[in-house]
Design a protein around this nucleic acid. Structure first.
Lengths: 200, 200
DNA sequence: GTCTATAGAGAGATAGAC
DNA sequence: GTCTATCTCTCTATAGAC
């Protein structure tokens, strides 16, 4: 039941093409060419464009959501430890595949019904997560949604905007990869500061 | 030189279809149907799919970038005033068209060459903006890129993630529109707190 | 300006030889 | 498993009647 070399070459080509162009603009011929195989082999191994896309998309959703959720629900770490660990691990993970957030958010928004059922994100109860319960204990006056939006926004938004900002001349966003990596240390400091201020 | 009724109906339909599906998945037939006109009229008034898309895209880029840049370069307001004003105006503006950030970032990433020249965002020098100079005076030890990423991320990221989060059951993101509007008052407080802490 | 009809290119998918 | 050839459908765009 191990995958053949051809099968894996096609899948890797599909990853690249779908990430670059999105589902609609990607073509089966693009994938075959990138893999260096005959067009009909893509259908032979994966049967349809929709099917191979769902395989890639499931993989990508697992990567973007699965890499943080275990830490968020862990009952055995403090809030501070979670924040440090998640921001570091997440920035390292997404840096290997920096277009991942824009790709996943964009495709999910275009086809929420079909793609939403592939990954159980819609069945998750944020209120029962350890990280949310810990935040509520620390800052009872603030809606935890704001905390999650700030934390995730600080971590993920730079990847979404990187492509655009890096094109600006002579700018503050030169070397945006370096800037993003600096944030692994800075985000926990900023968040800790916000928690202590307990602004409401 | 005023637009005819048909011409405007087609443009409005194109706005909706392109925002929903993106450039690649949108069809001239979709646009004609949404406008309630014959297919060939879309080409009669706008000549090609690429052309009508660029018209819509230019409009949208003007909306997402043009609505904040004037405030960022204004030499006659304080940093604190800028932050308050921008977060309020921006959240109100984007709330009327909440899919705008995801649409613009996504399409720009897929076709940066052609779309980048439509709007002069790539010619802007962030370092010369009043808001950046003011931040550097207030927090000389922090790269202003972090400030801009935090400020814009806190403001824009909730719109990018809203679609996904709002599907979660029994969650903290119920009524995400209300939560986003609360942020008009909260973001200036958080940012002010970060400036005063001057974390480095 | 608006319609019908269609050209022409490109897409996804499959049949069938090897 | 891999190839060539092709079917069928859909798309953008245009020609030409009214």
């Amino acid at each position: 039941m191990t995958e053949s070399l051809t099968e894996e070459k096609i899948k890797e080509a599909a990853r690249i093409i779908f990430m670059e162009k999105g589902y609609a603009a990607a073509g089966m011929r693009d994938i075959a060419a990138k893999a260096g195989v005959n067009l009909s082999l893509v259908n032979y191994y994966y049967r349809s464009k929709k099917n191979i896309f769902q395989i890639i998309m499931l993989e990508k959703m697992h990567k973007i959501f699965g890499s943080i959720i275990p830490y968020m629900i862990d009952e055995n770490t403090s809030l501070e430890e979670k924040i440090k660990h998640i921001s570091t691990v997440y920035i390292d993970t997404i840096s290997e595949d920096p277009n991942l957030p824009l790709f996943v958010f964009s495709e999910l928004q275009k086809n929420p019904e079909e793609l939403g059922i592939l990954f159980p994100i819609q069945n998750m109860d944020f209120m029962q997560m350890s990280i949310v319960k810990q935040f509520k204990a620390a800052c009872p006056d603030i809606n935890p949604a704001h905390f999650m939006l700030n934390f995730l926004g600080m971590t993920i938004f730079p990847f979404i905007a990187a492509h655009l900002f890096s094109k600006m001349p002579n700018g503050i966003f030169d070397n945006i990869q370096t800037i993003i990596h600096e944030r692994k240390k800075l985000i926990p400091l900023w968040i800790k500061n916000m928690l202590e201020a307990n602004i409401n």
